[in-house]
Amino acid sequence: MNPAMARQLRALLTKDLRLELRTRETAVAMGLFALVGMVIFQFAIGTRTDDATPFAGGIIWATLALTAVLGVGRTWVAEREQRVLDALLAAPVPRLVLMSARAVALVLYLLAVQVVVVPLAMIFFVREGSFADLGLTVVVCLLADVAIALVGALLASMSVFSRARELLLPVLLLPSLIPVVIAAAGATHAVLGPAHALDEYWRYCVFLAVYAVVFGLVAFATFDHILDD
C-alpha cells in the first residue's frame, strides 16, 4: 500500500465516520438490535436454567452475527441512494482501496457495538466473570470482526447491485458466517465457562485467523470482478 492509497483510504474512512457521527444511524440501531436479540435469546434458552453461563458464548455470537447482517446491509446503501457510488467508481481510486475502506468501516461499526454489548452480556449472563476474561473475549471480537468484515464487504458489494438486496444479503452472508459463529462462540465459551479451557480458546482463535486469511485472499482475488463498472 503506497502513500497515495493510504491517503485515499483515510479520506474514504473519514467520510464514512463523519457521516455516522453526524447521523448515528447505523451504530445505534445495531446496538439496540443486539440488546433486543440477546433478551430474546435469553427467553428462548436461558429461562430453562438459573445459570446462563453455559449459553453466554452462544447467545453473544448468535446475536452479534445477526447484528453484523444489519451493519453489512448498510454498506454502500447511503452511497447508492445519493448516487455517490457512481462518482466513487468513476474517481481514480483503486478498487482495492474502496473495498478496504468498507471492510475497515465495518470493523469499526462492529467494535462500537461490541464495546457496549459484550460487557452487558457478561453482566447479564456470566457468573464470576473477570476483567481478564473480558480481555480474552476482546481478542475473539477483534478476530471475528475482521473475518466478518472481509466476508461482509465482498458479499455486500455483490448484493447492492442486485434486486431485493435486503433479502439477498442475509441469505448470502449468514451461511458463510456459521463457521465464525461456531468458532467465536466456542472461544468465548472456553473463556467464560467453568472449565476455563485456554488451549481450546487458542485453537478457536487460530481458526478465526485462518478463516479471515482465507476469505481475505478470496476477496483480494475477486473484488475486481465485482466493482468493475
Partner: peptide
Amino acid sequence: IFAFAGVPLSFYSVRV
C-alpha cells in the same frame, strides 16, 4: 469460488 473456499472451513469448524 467464494463458497468453495468456505467448504473446507465449514468442515474444519464443525470438527474443531
